[in-house]
Computed example of a mutant assay.
Amino acid sequence: MSERSASERSAELERLACDLVRIPTENPPGNEGAAAEFVSDWFREEGIDATLLEEPDPDRPQVGARVGENGPTVVLNGHLDVVPAGDPEAWTTDPYGGAVEDGRLYGRGSADMKTGVALAMLVARDLAPEIRSGSLSGSVVVHAAMGEETADPGTRTLLERGFDGDYGIVLEPTDFRVATSTKGLSVYRIAVEGMATHASQPDAGTNTIDEARPLLDAIDEYDADLRQREGSLCGGAFATVTEIEAGTDSNLAVIPDHAELVLDRRVLPGEDPDAVDAEVEALLDRVREEHGVETTWTRIQTYASSSIPVDHPLATSLRDGSAEAVGADGGVGEPWGIEAATDARNFVNDAEIPAVTWGPGDLDQAHTVDESIALADADVARNVLEDVVRAFIE
């Protein structure tokens, strides 16, 4: 444990998390640069080697930092990007003001996941003296990655460029539950074709909105079927239309000849994305055969699912430490999988590094108006994380 007092530790964590929240890093469009420079400068001021990596996108740098060169290595992963805040007038506080009220930090990214980034930075800094003195034989790596919110290969690139290790902890908000499994998703853009005509003569054309109706019905049936299948620690699979557009690029009096919708298919551990593609294609074939609706499709985004054994020592250690710190309520001491996709998939699937998703804060706060996190929980998480990492790099 750091020699700083509890109050000093709380104050510096609050200050660092606030500073990060106050740097807008919305994705899209993806403007992580200022935050990456902040993180890189902070590490260098603390005497820690940090690289401002301009891959995979030179306009969107990210940071990899390392303390130590030998022994077992734990990678602490966080992402710098946040989803757009939307209308600031809908927020009670400035989404990028970093306000603290009644012990909660408010702002876009407070829960998802700049407080997690701050935890990684501070734990690496606090363990650095023991690593350098040789009393800890291992190493700590920190990721401040770009592009997690849109499946960009930020974390994967950091791992490929040598910021890897033997274990990974992805510091997303899980309310102290340890996720050994993560859901994935495949996102599809589906186009429906019709024939344009004047709205005063609708029967002279084919309204693509009407053509989309049986497709929407078929997707509802597909979703119902998925919900009946066996689930996982992450819950069940779903198929949801998240966007639909038709007629927006023409005159108001024109029957639209083209519609596009976005289908979000949540993918469970063990499901093959290619097999999911085949299910979607079969669905569209059936709609064409039964209703004459012509469609084309493209998979536009993919997050792979991931899984490691629930009794992996890293998972067990974090579960035990969390349950001791906050109690076993809410499933903290039980095996669990997270419904959301996380960059744990890059560790497990791409780099073959066992990784869990864990952190303070409630996932329900992610992507919401007035997003916030209890700073007292962040303090507890810092202590748990420091103890667990120290045990794995002794």
Score class of each variant (00 low, 15 high):
Glu339Ala: 13
Leu105Arg: 06
Gly330Ala: 02
Ala224Asn: 04
Gly109Gln: 03
Ser10Tyr: 07
Phe392Val: 09
Thr296Leu: 06
Ser2Gln: 04
Pro256Phe: 10
Ala11Val: 10
Gly116Val: 08
Ser306Asn: 05
Glu160Ala: 14
Ser139Asp: 01
Phe176Thr: 09
Ala323Ser: 13
Gly270Trp: 03
Pro84Phe: 12
Ala391Thr: 14
Asp59Ser: 14
Thr93Lys: 07
Ala325Gly: 10
Leu20Pro: 00
Leu76Gly: 03
Gly97Leu: 12
Thr197Leu: 09
Glu281His: 08
Val287Ala: 05
Ala179Lys: 05
Val140Gly: 00
Trp42Asn: 04
Glu243Ser: 15
Trp336Ile: 04
Pro173Met: 06
Arg60Thr: 01
Phe38Pro: 03
His143Met: 04
Ser40Asp: 11
Trp297Pro: 00
Ser133Met: 05
Asn207Trp: 07
Val117Gln: 02
Glu14Thr: 10
Gly138Lys: 01
Ile131Tyr: 08
Glu334Thr: 07
Arg4Glu: 09
Ala191Phe: 09
Pro56Lys: 09
Val241Thr: 14
Arg9Met: 04
Thr150Ile: 13
Ala35Pro: 10
Ala328Gln: 13
Ser10Phe: 08
Ala378Gly: 06
Glu69Ile: 13
Gly116Leu: 10
Val287Gln: 07
Asp311Leu: 03
Ala323Cys: 06
Asp166Arg: 03
Arg4Trp: 00
Arg161Gly: 08
